[in-house]
C-alpha cells in the first residue's frame, strides 16, 4: 500500500519536471472520473440535497411541490406513529449490535478451532445472507402464520397448543418476530467478518499468553478481543446502519401493522409517500432518518480517514 501511495505522490512532480511526457495531461484523472462522478452526483448526491428541499414542501407526487416551511417537521414531531417508528428502530438497533455480534464472534472463535464439519457449518450460517429479504420475509411469514404455520403447528404437536398465537398480529410481539428473522440472516455475515479478522491474529501471541499462565478466557479477553477491535468497530457501525434502514422485512411481513405497532422509519416514510401521497411529509421523515444515520456514517468515515492518514 505504502509503495502505491508514494508512487502516486511523486508522479505529478516528476511529470511537471519532464513537461508531462507521453500525452499524460493534468486532465487525465478527470477524464476517467467524469462519467462515474456525474452519475453519482446526479443519482445520489443531488437527490440527497433535493430531499431536504422536498421536506419543506407540500407535495402529492403529481403537481408541483409548494413550499410550506417547517410545517412537515412540526407535524412529524407531534405524530405518535413517528415515535413508535423511532422506538422500533431502537429495538432493531439494540438487537443488531448485540445478538448477531456476540453469536457471530462466538461462532467464529469455535470454527477457527477446526471443529469437525466447519466448512458445512460456515455455509449453513452464511447461506441466509444470500437469500433476498423478500424471501426471508415470506419464509418467516409462513413460519409465523396463525393457521398451519410451522410455529403454531409445532406447538400443538408438542401439546403446547395453548401457547400458539397470531405472532405477527400481536402488537407487542410483531416487531420482535420480524427482528428474529433479520437476526437469522445477519449472524452469518458477522461471523464471516470475524473469521476474516481472526486470520490476522498471530497464534503465537495467544500461545505466549498461555505460557504466561492465562487460561482460554483470559487469552480471548485480553489478547484476541483487543486485536479484533478494528473488526468490531466495522461490524457495529454496519449493523447500526443496517438496522436503521430496515424496510423490506417489515413491509413484507406486516406492512408496519397491526395498527402501526411494528412500523419503522423507512416503512412509515414509504406508507406516507406511496399510500397516502404525502410526499413532502415523507421527505421530512427521510431527512430525520438520514440525520440519525449520518452520526454513524461520520464515525465510519472518520475511521476510514484515520487509516488514510497512516499511509
Amino acid at each position: 500500500m505504502a509503495v502505491g501511495r508514494v508512487e502516486a505522490g511523486q508522479r505529478p512532480q516528476a511529470r511537471a519536471r519532464k513537461g508531462r511526457p507521453l500525452g499524460v495531461s493534468q486532465w487525465t484523472p478527470y477524464l476517467f472520473l467524469v462519467v462515474p462522478l456525474a452519475l453519482f452526483l446526479m443519482w445520489v448526491i443531488g437527490p440527497l440535497f433535493y430531499s431536504f428541499y422536498l421536506s419543506l414542501t407540500n407535495w402529492d407526487g403529481i403537481s408541483a411541490p409548494k413550499l410550506v416551511g417547517l410545517a412537515n417537521y412540526r407535524r412529524l414531531f407531534a405524530d405518535p406513529i413517528f415515535y413508535t417508528a423511532v422506538w422500533n428502530n431502537v429495538k432493531w438497533l439494540i438487537s443488531f449490535i448485540t445478538v448477531p455480534v456476540i453469536m457471530g464472534l462466538a461462532l467464529a472463535m469455535a470454527l477457527n478451532r477446526n471443529i469437525p464439519g466447519a466448512r458445512l457449518i460456515k455455509a449453513i450460517f452464511y447461506s441466509p445472507y444470500i437469500l433476498s429479504l423478500v424471501v426471508v420475509g415470506l419464509i418467516f411469514g409462513w413460519i409465523y402464520l396463525p393457521a398451519g404455520g410451522l410455529l403454531n403447528s409445532t406447538l400443538s404437536t408438542l401439546g403446547l397448543g395453548a401457547l400458539s398465537k397470531g405472532w405477527l398480529s400481536d402488537k407487542g410481539l410483531a416487531t420482535w418476530c420480524i427482528i428474529a428473522a433479520a437476526v437469522w440472516r445477519q449472524v452469518g455475515y458477522v461471523m464471516t467478518l470475524y473469521l476474516a479478522g481472526l486470520q490476522g491474529v498471530d497464534p503465537s501471541l495467544v500461545d505466549a499468553s498461555k505460557v504466561d499462565g492465562a487460561n482460554s478466557w483470559q487469552a480471548f479477553r485480553h489478547v484476541i478481543l483487543p486485536l479484533l477491535n478494528p473488526v468490531t468497530v466495522v461490524v457495529v457501525v454496519i449493523s447500526i446502519i443496517d438496522s436503521l434502514r430496515s424496510f423490506d422485512l417489515v413491509y413484507i411481513m406486516t406492512r408496519g401493522g397491526p395498527a402501526n405497532a411494528s412500523t419503522v422509519m423507512a416503512n412509515f416514510m414509504y406508507i406516507e409517500a406511496f399510500n397516502n401521497y404525502n410526499m413532502g411529509y415523507a421527505a421530512s421523515i427521510a431527512v430525520i432518518l438520514f440525520l440519525i444515520t449520518s452520526i454513524f456514517i461520520f464515525i465510519y468515515l472518520a475511521r476510514v480517514m484515520a487509516t488514510e492518514m497512516e499511509y
Binding site: 502505491g4 508512487e7 502516486a8 505522490g9 508522479r11 505529478p12 493534468q26 487525465t28 484523472p29 478527470y30 472520473l33 462522478l37 453519482f40 452526483l41 443519482w43 445520489v44 448526491i45 443531488g46 437527490p47 440527497l48 433535493y50 430531499s51 422536498l54 446502519i241 436503521l244 434502514r245 424496510f247 422509519m265 423507512a266 416514510m269 414509504y270 409517500a273 410526499m279 415523507a282 421527505a283 427521510a286 431527512v287 432518518l289 438520514f290 444515520t293 456514517i297 465510519y300 468515515l301 476510514v304 480517514m305 488514510e308
Partner: peptide
C-alpha cells in the same frame, strides 16, 4: 483515484464512500 494525485482526489473519494453508506430511503422520492 488510486493512481493520480490531483486536486479533489480525497474529497471525491469521500463522496463515493459516504454516498455508499446512505440510508437509501433519503433518495427514494427525489
Amino acid at each position: 483515484l488510486a493512481r493520480f494525485n490531483f486536486r479533489g482526489n480525497r474529497v471525491i473519494f469521500f463522496i463515493f464512500v459516504g454516498g455508499a453508506l446512505l440510508p437509501f430511503q433519503i433518495l427514494l422520492l427525489p
